[in-house]
Design a protein around this nucleic acid. Sequence first.
DNA 1: GCGACAG
DNA 2: ATCTTGTCGC
Length: 229
Amino acid sequence: MTPTDMTHAAPVWNGDVAKARVLQTELAARVRLEDDYPPLRRVAGVDVGFEDGGTVTRAAAVLLDARTLAPLAEVVARQPTRMPYIPGLLSFRELPALLQALSELPESPDLVFVDGQGIAHPRRLGIAAHLGVVTGLPTIGVAKSILVGTHEDVGPHRGDRQPLEHKGEVIGCVLRSKDRVRPLIVSPGHRVSMATAPELVLAFNTTYRLPEPTRLADRLASRRGSVRR
DNA sequence: GCGACAG
DNA sequence: ATCTTGTCGC
């Protein structure tokens, strides 16, 4: 699939919450949780921010060298905001702009780190899983807080973790990425297993709380990032 | 019916 | 997410 084809897979918000939920359940059935990603050469981080009081959705995609973590390309896509934030339906609000940003990267990534839940979602289709299913790309969801699920207390050191459970199923893991800092909520998005997801997050995590792909996309989406020269 | 609730 | 400066802690 060529990058430009991806925008055609964007979910369409028609104001019908019930219909959106049915679509999520259908798409969730297409999520693959077996490890099935190529040797990692380039990885991407994507995130969304808002401008002008929320009227403009700003999506950022950063491509980095998987070996050195050096940024290879950065893209920002802007679109008018079409719907409000509704817990559980985040992908309908943010995916259109995110797909546009991803499609404008010069090369396709081997893995995408998405800011939000993977399958750790009421219907097992958080934005990372949704993005994976519509693009076919391997994805991992890295969220800063929980949408659904419960867990035991997590140890204080980097690498400590606890399974996140919901309705009798393990849907992700609560992972401490840095000593004594609030843990991250990690869950597979697509073509990545439950066991591998947290390992990949740690592998791409350096001295900050967030893994590098996510951290760079975050800064770009939120207008921060000191591009001082 | 009463909360909780990714970003 | 966003509105927003300095400040407490490692």
